[in-house]
Amino acid sequence: NKASVVANQLIPINTALTLIMMKAEVVTPMGIPAEEIPKLVGMQVNRAVPLGTTLMPDMVKNYE
C-alpha cells in the first residue's frame, strides 16, 4: 500500500503548506501520494483541513 499525505495539524484556509504540516500515512481512500510532499510545499489549501485529514487533490490550489 502506498502512503498518502495527511494533515499533521489543523491547516487554516489559504495557508501555504510547509513540511511540518504534513505526514505520510497509509489511508483509505488514498489521497495525494506521499512522494508529492516536496511539490506541495508552498502551495495553498483552498479550505480548512482538520488534523488527521487526508489531503485530496481538490483541497490544494493549482495542484495537478
Score class of each variant (00 low, 15 high):
Leu40Cys: 03
Ile13His: 14
Ala24Asp: 05
Ile13Trp: 11
Met43Asn: 04
Val49Tyr: 02
Ala7Glu: 01
Ala3Arg: 14
Pro29Ile: 05
Asn1Asp: 15
Val60Gly: 01
Met59His: 05
Asn62Met: 11
Gln44Ala: 09
Val6Asn: 03
Thr28Ala: 15
Ile11Tyr: 01
Asn62His: 06
Leu17Ile: 14
Leu55His: 01
Ile32Gln: 01
Glu35His: 14
Tyr63Asn: 07
Met21Ser: 07
Pro50Tyr: 07
Ile32Met: 05
Glu25Ser: 11
Thr18Phe: 14
Lys23Met: 13
Leu51Thr: 14
Ala34Tyr: 14
Val41Lys: 12
Arg47Lys: 09
Pro57Gly: 10
Gly31Met: 03
Gly52Met: 06
Lys39Arg: 10
Ala3Ser: 12
Tyr63Ser: 11
Ala16Trp: 05
Lys2Arg: 10
Glu36Thr: 06
Ile13Asp: 10
Ala34Arg: 04
Asn62Val: 05
Val27Arg: 13
Ala48Pro: 12
Ala34Phe: 15
Ala3Asn: 07
Asn62Tyr: 12
Val6Asp: 00
Gly31Asn: 01
Met43Gly: 06
Leu40Met: 10
Pro38His: 14
Leu55Glu: 01
Leu10His: 07
Gly42Trp: 04
Thr53Arg: 08
Lys61Gln: 13
Val6Leu: 10
Lys39Met: 07
Val26Glu: 12
Lys2Val: 13
Asn46Trp: 11
Pro29Gln: 09
Leu10Met: 13
Gln9His: 09
Gln44Leu: 14
Asn1Leu: 14
Pro33Ala: 09
Ala48Tyr: 13
Leu19Phe: 05
Asn8Gly: 11
Glu64Ser: 06
Ala7Arg: 01
Asp58Arg: 13
Asn62Pro: 05
Val26Tyr: 14
Lys61Ala: 13
Ala24Gln: 06
Gln9Trp: 14
Ile11Lys: 00
Leu10Asn: 13
Val26Asn: 04
Gly31Ala: 04
Tyr63Phe: 11
Val26Ser: 11
Leu55Cys: 02
Leu55Trp: 01
Leu40Thr: 02
Pro38Cys: 02
Pro33Ser: 10
Val49Ser: 02
Ile11Gln: 00
Lys2Phe: 06
Ile37Cys: 02
Met22Glu: 00
Lys23Phe: 07
Gly31Gln: 07
Val60Met: 03
Met56Gln: 05
Gly31Ile: 02
Pro33Met: 09
Pro50Leu: 06
Ile13Gly: 10
Glu25Asp: 06
Ala34Ile: 10
Pro50Trp: 10
Pro29Gly: 10
Ala16Gly: 03
Met30Ile: 12
Ile37Met: 12
Ile32Asp: 01
Met43Phe: 10
Met59Ala: 10
Arg47Ala: 13
Ala16Lys: 13
Leu17Val: 05
Pro38Gln: 12
Ile13Gln: 13
Leu51Gly: 11
Ile20Met: 11
Asn14Met: 09
Ser4Pro: 00
Thr15Pro: 00
Asn14Thr: 07
Ile32Arg: 00
Ala7Met: 15
Gly52Phe: 07
Val49Gln: 03
Gln9Ser: 09
Arg47Gln: 04
Met22Val: 08
Met43Leu: 12
Lys2Asp: 09
Asn8Val: 11
Asn1Cys: 03
Val26Gly: 03
Ala34Gly: 09
Pro50Cys: 03
Pro38Met: 03
Ile11Cys: 02
Asn1His: 12
Met21Cys: 02
Asp58Glu: 09
Thr53Asp: 06
Val60Phe: 09
Ala16His: 14
Val45His: 00
Gln44Asn: 13
Val45Phe: 02
Pro50Met: 11
Ala48Met: 13
Glu35Ala: 04
Val5Ser: 06
Met30Asp: 09
Val26Met: 13
Thr54Trp: 02
Asn14Pro: 02
Leu55Lys: 01
Glu36Trp: 15
Met22Asp: 00
Thr53Met: 07
Glu25Met: 11
Asn8Met: 08
Val6Gly: 02
Lys39Asn: 09
Met56Trp: 06
Val49Trp: 02
Leu40Glu: 01
Val60Ala: 01
Met59Glu: 03
Ile37Arg: 07
Lys39Ser: 05
Pro38Arg: 08
Val60Asp: 00
Leu10Pro: 05
Gln9Ile: 11
Lys2Gly: 08
Leu19Tyr: 06
Pro33Asp: 12
Tyr63Leu: 11
Leu17Gln: 00
Pro57Arg: 05
Leu10Ile: 13
Thr54Met: 04
Val41Gln: 15
Pro57Ser: 13
Ala24Arg: 08
Val45Ala: 04
Thr54Phe: 02
Gly42Asn: 12
Met56Pro: 01
Gln9Thr: 13
Leu19Ala: 09
Met59Gln: 03
Ser4Asp: 00
Asp58Ala: 08
Asn1Pro: 08
Ala3Trp: 02
